[in-house]
Write a protein that binds this DNA or RNA. Structure first.
Lengths: 192, 192
DNA sequence: GTCTATATCCAGATAGAC
DNA sequence: GTCTATCTGGATATAGAC
């Protein structure tokens, strides 16, 4: 059985991810959580507070996942392939990831979000690029990944996966994503 | 000298692209346009009406640009390179494109936008994929573009460019985008 | 802990003067 | 055409009963 607070979190994530902070009413969250509007204020001081909590949590989860892959004890090429594999699985199967990625995408695209949410984004959004840049450098040293500025390649990697995530999130028909090898071959010296 | 209506359009596009439909107040638009709130209603019946106008216009502009490239009288390989060149120029230089792409990205990510805006999106968002798919097929027949499902490759192409556009739009420091050749080589048989 | 009722505020939209 | 003043509705947040 879920506590009221847990029900609020789950409902708020779903509502915010679908409609954004400003189009979501407190009433929407309360209704989906199956509680009254008043009760919500036992657990949170304001709508913004829920939102900031969710944004911080989403960014932390994202960074933990990336750190998990980067800290594997294997070659850069394997880390790359592993990242693509993991991201594809997550994008295609996880409803929770659809929600958190939509939440972050919307937050990044709006200047009107609360200052605390902006701060969290600013502090936490760069880690994936840095981690992946290190993976690229490792692979370049090992001779398995193409030459080029490692941060540029990291930007390209995440931009491509973000773009595919958004494409997937915004279509009803769940068409399979393009073959993983197309992504891998952007970076690999020896194509697969 | 701009008419009041033109000033409203320009201000609304800027406000909506930065804050989204729901966080933007009529007052924000009127202030930026340098007119009173009341005057705005001489030209538009509601905030939603301005928004729907802008969305439809943004989608039309996007599709016109794509059709322009696809109808060039040249090989598929050249159309591909031309598309990348054109998109890079637009992403890096055009403030207007930053606004329209943000507007569309936000609209795609929210279920709360007006029905007319949803309809416009649904009807007009697929054309770029279809056009690019044809370019891919042409290049495959000519032997210049790699094998694979042409619509999948079109999805990959636009997802990558959308991802890069969003990356660019959400960073203050205007770091140059990754080398165009990385994108081209995803699709070209003979790498450059 | 939970609900209902309500106070307060603010944004969208309208009316009417100039 | 343009502005100021106002109406109205709805959403956030609070108060108070159970």
């Amino acid at each position: 059985m879920l506590t009221s607070k847990e029900k609020i979190i789950i409902a708020a994530l779903n509502q915010f991810s679908r409609k954004g902070l400003f189009a979501t009413r407190i009433q929407d969250i309360a209704t989906e959580a199956g509680i009254s509007q008043g009760l919500l204020y036992r657990y949170y001081k304001s709508k913004n507070e829920i939102y900031v909590d969710l944004i911080e949590d989403a960014l932390d989860k994202m960074n933990e996942a990336v750190e998990g892959i980067a800290s594997l004890n294997c070659g850069g090429r394997e880390k790359l392939l592993n990242s693509i594999e993991g991201m594809y699985k997550t994008i295609e199967e996880s409803d929770r990831y659809r929600q958190t990625s939509s939440l972050i995408a919307q937050a990044m695209g709006s200047e009107a979000i609360p200052q605390e949410a902006k701060d969290a984004l600013k502090n936490k959004r760069d880690l994936p690029y840095q981690m992946f840049s290190k993976i690229i450098v490792q692979g370049q040293k090992e001779g398995t990944i193409i030459e080029g500025d490692s941060y540029d390649l990291a930007v390209l990697f995440w931009s491509t996966l973000n773009g595919l995530t958004i494409f997937r999130n915004t279509r009803d028909e769940k068409r399979p994503l393009p073959d993983k090898r197309f992504i891998a071959n952007i970076f690999l010296k020896e194509k697969i």
